[in-house]
């Protein structure tokens, strides 16, 4: 069971009370009061690690991939998305107008809320809190390790039956490093399996802290050419590749995930280079390489956030084409002696 919080400890460190619990105190300690920002908790996820899992989406990212399908994950602070189509109009409702701290913060056109007139969206949180239709949607809630774990542990019986557990995703799941590590530790204390989805773009010390609590890592490799990597994601790839070596050297099981974007990183040249790197520099020590299709997802979220969609001119190939291409790429990479698969559904080898 989840431990109770000792308010007096200030940091909110947790322990079982009573004498009998003393023996377990080392095993059961984690900082339930530590706070972080999460933009979604998705129960019953089955494509992000073994079994039935709960994915906790950590807000904030250090990359700016032009194909990102979770634009709401990029900024660390809470944001408000606006869906004018869902607004039933200020004539019939108007709850937000009553809750707004200053009248000019909401942009209303033809009696519908269409945008925010501020670069500090958090001041409009009270409006979202009263909106009955979901026209104003909040992404990013400041929460604690304890609150997140309460939600995660509600599906314990399903993890037990399926061998599942907690997966951290993002954004960059380790961008709020202390919070993320504490969640992983909490999961281990509670006996849950842990997976981390990460782009590896951070200092090596972050990895050092997380590694002891990581049962499986999903690591993104977006491009082997550092210049192209910088063009598509905003950062160079040297530190990412170093971290990948480090994580593999630690003995942690690693699955490589590559979003295959045609004409960007989805080229024979890049994928061969990736395979070669994995064989030559990593010793092929990854359990699987998943090639994921790129589809234009998240367009409506970009619009809700008032952000331009970077790939708007990109024409995604039809399903039969990308399915064929990805299968071919997987076969090509497998020829290097790697376990490359199409999509995220294949069983991860034990």
């Amino acid at each position: 069971m989840f431990c109770e919080v000792h308010e007096a400890s200030g940091t909110g460190s947790a322990a079982l009370s009573g004498e009998a619990a003393q023996n377990h105190i080392m095993m059961t300690e984690y900082d339930t009061g530590l706070t972080g920002t999460v933009f979604d908790i998705q129960r019953f996820s089955v494509h992000d690690g073994p079994g039935i899992r709960t994915v906790v989406f950590i807000k904030g990212c250090s990359l700016r991939c032009i194909w990102c399908s979770n634009p709401e994950s990029i900024k660390r602070r809470p944001q408000i998305g606006i869906y004018p189509d869902r607004c039933i109009g200020t004539g019939k409702c108007g709850e937000c107008l009553e809750a707004v701290p200053a009248a000019d913060l909401l942009i209303v056109k033809e009696r519908k809320v269409v945008g925010l007139n501020t670069d500090r969206p958090e001041v409009c949180l009270p409006c979202a809190a009263v909106c009955p239709t979901g026209a104003l949607k909040v992404w990013g809630e400041k929460t604690t390790v304890g609150e997140v774990m309460t939600e995660v542990l509600s599906d314990r019986q399903f993890y037990e039956e399926s061998g599942g557990g907690l997966t951290l995703s993002g954004g960059e799941s380790l961008i709020q490093a202390r919070f993320a590590v504490e969640l992983l530790k909490a999961a281990h204390v509670e006996g849950l399996n842990t997976c981390v989805e990460t782009a590896l773009n951070y200092d090596a010390e972050v990895l050092d802290k997380a590694l002891p609590y990581m049962d499986l890592a999903y690591c993104d490799l977006k491009h082997m050419d550092s210049g192209a990597h910088k063009r598509f994601t905003g950062v160079a790839n040297e530190r990412i590749l170093e971290n990948l070596k480090k994580i593999v050297d630690s003995g942690t099981r690693v699955v490589i995930r590559i979003p295959v974007v045609p004409g960007h990183n989805g080229t024979e040249e890049n994928l061969r280079a990736t395979a070669k790197f994995l064989v030559d520099d990593i010793g092929g020590n990854v359990v699987q390489i998943q090639l994921l299709p790129f589809r234009k997802l998240g367009v409506e979220k970009y619009a809700a956030l008032g952000m331009p969609y970077p790939m708007k001119d990109f024409e995604a190939p039809p399903r039969d084409v990308w399915e064929r291409d990805i299968r071919q790429f997987a076969a090509m990479m497998s020829a290097y002696g790697l376990n490359a698969v199409a999509g995220s559904g294949a069983r991860i080898p034990k």
Partner: peptide
């Protein structure tokens, strides 16, 4: 529900 994991997860869900 596809694949081996789809079967396992459905059974796990029911068993739970």
């Amino acid at each position: 529900l596809c694949g081996e994991s789809g079967v396992k997860n459905l059974v796990s869900l029911a068993t739970a």
